[in-house]
Design a protein around this nucleic acid. Structure first.
Length: 467
RNA sequence: GGCGGGGUAGCCAAGUGGUAAGGCAGGGCUCUGCAAAAGCCUCAUCCGUCGGUUCGAUUCCGACCCUCGCCUCCA
């Protein structure tokens, strides 16, 4: 068995094999955030998906170099820098920091390389020069440099590798924008945008004149720098297929003459409460919004990770509440196993790991992988209740859990400190119970619940849990 | 108009040419003074509609209905 992934290039599920002749190292690039605002839950689905891909590759024994760019210069950013009368660095720095914090809260492993567009202007200019030299880019009257789709196709290159494009049938409606100035053809796109007064202090010198990079070029320049002219995997949201990824392919292959990426993976979007997310509908959530509603990053991660990445997922607050309960069930079981195993260590028990692995290998069938986890939880609970799980078996079960959790990234629930007030109430309840004052004991239990704590009586004494 | 996803229980969501994983919610039970976000059990004669192929279809084919996305801001 080996990992199979859906490659957008071939529109089919293919066995994954890395370019590395040793079959070990894998280069993976994921289009990162454009840091003009807090990332929303839809953005997070894509980054959690990228994290799953990386962890699955590592689980399969590959050594992954994970690159995620930070786009810190772009139209919207420039606009907001102007509106807020701030500097580019100050503005983008704030949202970049917030992004990385949230990424961590969601249990995502930090990418190994996080290049910023503004720190790769030289590489970007170099790539554009190559394209100009090869005759597939031209400088227009407005001073901007554009990529010519016609010239590129004229060289025998294919434009439209990720989806079928029919330029004659395309609607060149209201969105073919007013801000694209002097292009030879509508499909052409900007590599370098000439400086305009609205850009303020945001511009760089270049052989083509002062200006700034176009939208797509930074990904080509930075991915090639970090991973080479041809690399294994490139991921992003499905909406990026066109034009962003298509243009990346054109720029990169146009400049290097080599295949750019072996596997393209695209994550589907999500709906929130069955509707397309929009601020107006009130179903637009950032991670911060959800935390304010009392949910944790790992609960959000669980929910985002509960469904197949290639299908639209319906993210709901009800679902998030369900995620909280489901996670608590896993936590409970794992905690019991851990307690039973004590300091004993063992090699992972095969049942869970095998079922989990074969599910993931089928193009990341995470739903089936979770089913394996919950079946394991039920079986394990049963054996613990029957008192038939030996210490070595518990250790092996724990090791198996840790193995699959290396992919799931759920980890342990962060144990909340029990506040003195709560501890005092719990003690008072124990005393009341001892005195057979059950009425008082129940009152205290209700009081604890109102304060967000559940108290459970176990054979070994009381147990406090934060809701 | 072009291209591409979907429609499986109250909700979310896998899957298969041979009779439907898993989670949440619901119901029952156990432990318990009573409980519990503690544990176990249970919960779709049925997979959008209508035809076709087949011994057999939710799965393959065709038509239709509904829904979502992309078509130069987009995860």
């Amino acid at each position: 068995m080996a990992l199979k992934l859906f490659n957008t290039l071939s529109r089919s599920v293919q066995a994954f094999t890395p370019l590395d002749p040793a079959g070990k190292r894998v280069g993976m690039y994921c289009c990162g955030p454009t840091v003009y605002d807090f990332a929303h839950i839809g953005n997070w689905r894509t980054f959690v998906f990228a994290d799953l891909v990386r962890r699955t590759l590592e689980f399969s024994g590959y050594e992954v170099k994970h690159v995620m760019n930070i786009t810190d210069v772009e139209d919207k950013i420039i606009q907001r820098v102007r509106e807020n009368q701030t500097t580019l660095r100050e503005f983008t720095g704030k949202f970049e920091a917030a992004f990385l914090e949230d990424l961590k809260a969601l249990g995502c492993l930090e990418p190994h390389v996080k290049p910023r567009a503004t720190e790769h202007i030289a590489e970007i200019i170099g790539l554009i020069e190559k394209l100009v030299a090869r005759g597939v880019a031209y400088k227009a009257a407005d001073g901007s440099v554009y990529f010519s789709i016609d010239k590129y196709r004229g060289c025998g290159c294919q434009y439209g590798q990720l989806l079928k494009l029919n330029f004659d049938e395309m609607r060149t409606g209201e969105r073919v924008s007013a801000d694209e100035y002097e292009k030879e053809s509508v499909a052409d796109f900007a590599l370098w945008k000439a400086r305009v007064p609205e850009d303020g202090a945001v511009f760089w010198p270049s052989p083509f004149g002062e200006g700034r990079p176009g939208w797509h070029i930074e990904c080509s320049a930075m991915s090639i720098k970090a991973l080479g002219e041809t690399f294994d995997l490139h991921l992003g949201g499905e909406d990026l297929k066109f034009p962003h990824h298509e243009d990346e392919i054109a720029q990169s292959e146009g400049a290097t003459g080599k295949p750019f990426v072996k596997f393209w993976l695209h994550g589907a979007h999500l709906l929130v409460e069955s509707k397309k997310m929009s601020k107006r509908l009130g179903n637009y959530f950032t991670l911060r919004d959800l935390v304010a509603k009392g949910f944790t990053g790992r609960e959000v991660r669980y929910l985002l990770l509960s469904a197949y990445y290639r299908e639209t997922f319906n993210f709901t607050l009800d679902g998030l509440a369900g995620a909280k309960t489901a996670l608590a069930r896993i936590d409970e079981c794992v905690a019991k196993v851990r307690e039973l195993a004590g300091t004993t260590t063992a090699t992972p028990a095969s049942g869970l790991v095998d079922a989990f692995k074969s599910a993931l290998e089928e193009d990341l069938n995470i739903s089936a992988a979770w089913a394996a986890v919950f079946e394991w939880v039920r079986e394990t609970n049963k054996r613990i209740a029957e008192n038939t799980l030996s210490v070595p078996e518990a250790a092996a079960a724990l090791a198996a859990w840790e193995r699959v959790d290396a992919v799931l990234g759920i980890g342990k629930k962060s144990e909340a400190e029990v506040p003195a007030e709560i501890a005092a109430l719990a003690e008072a309840r124990v005393a009341a119970k001892k005195a057979k004052d059950f009425k008082r004991a129940d009152t205290i239990r209700d009081e604890l619940k109102a304060k967000g704590w559940v108290i459970e009586d176990t054979p070994k004494g009381i147990k406090l849990k934060k809701i």
